[in-house]
């Protein structure tokens, strides 16, 4: 029988709101991609009929628009959680302002991408490379929302999509916006491919329960790393408190 000799502790990394965002977001993107493909190139499933007997393309578009609204507000909620959430969900993870973050990015490239180094990177939440890529993904979310709602504005009476309408002429018209919107969809598809693979990869070589952590929220972390993290967290709390006292 095989057993592990490592001493691990469990750390609650992904809080419920983060997990909720993740899965709702995944579902929305899946629906948006499928309906998006159909809208871009509708299949010829109907012929020899009058238009007044069906509305299937209208329904596909309706699903796309509803999913888009859920996607957008879910995204806004995640931005909020970047300020309210725990240290693994905090906004400053995603913005590489510190030198240590850039150092870790390079470290991750060496260990996981180029595989010229073997010692795993000790990050508990996202590693720094993942974070900077998520920053790009968030920008893509924003751009996708702007182009999408901008194009949608003319079909709508409500105020919200109209807030985005002004961006379309800036891009050079609806055709360009449509092209950006369509190309970004491919970015999401490519991202999803690599994202899922990397989850499997980390789970396989690090055995910290990476894949299941986004369901339950807990990760298995080596005792020493967890202790170091605890000390860091306490130090942060103390310095924050000290700053408040001043």
């Amino acid at each position: 029988m095989k057993t592990r000799k490592k001493r691990l502790v469990e750390i609650y990394v992904w809080e419920l709101p983060v997990r909720f965002f993740h899965w709702l977001n995944a579902l929305c993107i899946l629906i948006l991609c499928i309906t998006g493909f159909i809208i871009a190139d509708p299949p010829a499933i109907m012929t020899e009929t009058e238009a007044n007997f069906s509305y299937w393309f209208g329904i596909i578009r309706f699903i796309h628009f509803v999913a888009a609204f859920i996607f957008f507000f879910n995204f806004i909620f995640r931005l909020y959680w970047g300020f309210a959430g725990n240290r693994y969900a905090r906004w400053n993870n995603f913005v590489p302002l510190k030198k240590a973050q850039w150092k870790e990015i390079w470290e991750v490239i060496k260990v996981d991408v180029l595989m010229i180094k073997n010692k795993p990177v000790d990050s508990i939440g996202h590693n720094a490379l993942a974070c900077i890529i998520y920053l790009g993904v968030f920008c893509a979310f924003l751009l996708q929302s702007i182009t999408g709602f901008g194009l949608y504005a003319k079909m709508s009476e409500s105020i919200f999509p109209k807030l985005f309408a002004w961006t379309i002429p800036l891009m050079g018209g609806g055709l360009v916006a449509r092209e950006i919107h369509h190309s970004l969809m491919w970015f999401f598809i490519l991202f999803a491919l690599i994202h899922v693979y990397l989850v499997f990869y980390h789970d396989y070589i690090e055995q910290r329960g990476e894949a299941s952590s986004i369901i339950g929220g807990w990760k298995f972390i080596e005792e020493e790393i967890a202790e170091r993290e605890e000390v860091e967290e306490k130090a942060e709390i103390i310095t924050q408190a000290a700053r408040k006292d001043e």
């Binding site: 029988m1 057993t3 073997n118």
Partner: peptide, 15 residues
């Protein structure tokens, strides 16, 4: 490349 790392994590032992 990571064969050793993966094997190290799976040391034989008694339980």
């Amino acid at each position: 490349r990571k064969k050793k790392l993966i094997e190290n994590n799976e040391e034989e032992g008694d339980i």
